[in-house]
Amino acid sequence: MSLNVDRASMAFSFKGGMLPMTVMELTSADPERIREQLAGKLSQAPAFFQHTPVVLSVEKLDEPHLALERICAVCRAHKLLPVAVRGGSDPVKQSAWALGLGWFPPQEIKPRVLESVGNEAPVERVADEAPPAAIKGGRIHRGTVRSGQQVSAPEGDLVVVGSVNAGAEVLAAGSVHVYGALRGRALAGIHGDHDAGIFCRELHAELLSVAGNYKRLEDIDPQLLGRSVEVQLSDDQLTIVSLT
């Protein structure tokens, strides 16, 4: 019990964590060119620009002085939130700090470029071993996901060909599809993708969550239990729609 009392008196605790973070690899220091490209992207993928935190990587730039403040302003105007700068000279580091941004030393290994320029903003994800049967970052799991097991697709959609039993957990950066009964916990859009959904043949889920918005079994309309459903986020509310 004494442990609980201690915890209650603490205002905070430090926790180590690995968060997925979008890195904006700058190949030009010209704020105007950045603005143009961002405007183009915004129309292509509006869902991406939702106050998404980004790290500005200036490793590829060879300029000792950057118009960092203007670059940040351009980003914010397009609903990207620069939170830190990576790489660059000492003056760059100083101006990052002056702007209230963090600074990271340059990466020693070359970052994996997952999407080529022209598709979407280059995104770097937390290092993760490629899961088996990976398809474009997604994953297909065959068989029952049993109590105590966790199956995740950290980079895409997760398809479970089988049931997810009570006490099991399935997670995906994208959507979760269960071709069977969903009795455990299902979390879609774990990196904050609001467009992700959960689909299952038979709903008995202990917990449904899309981009952090969740419903417990208790909160689910009993009439929907046992039905084939689709779970989506609309206006930050989880909505469950019967598919039958």
């Binding site: 029952t144 049993r146 105590g148 039993n165 009570a166 006490g167 099991a168």
Partner: peptide, 12 residues
Amino acid sequence: VRDSDRILGLLA
């Protein structure tokens, strides 16, 4: 049944 389910996961 839930505990058996857990055991089946361990068997695999």
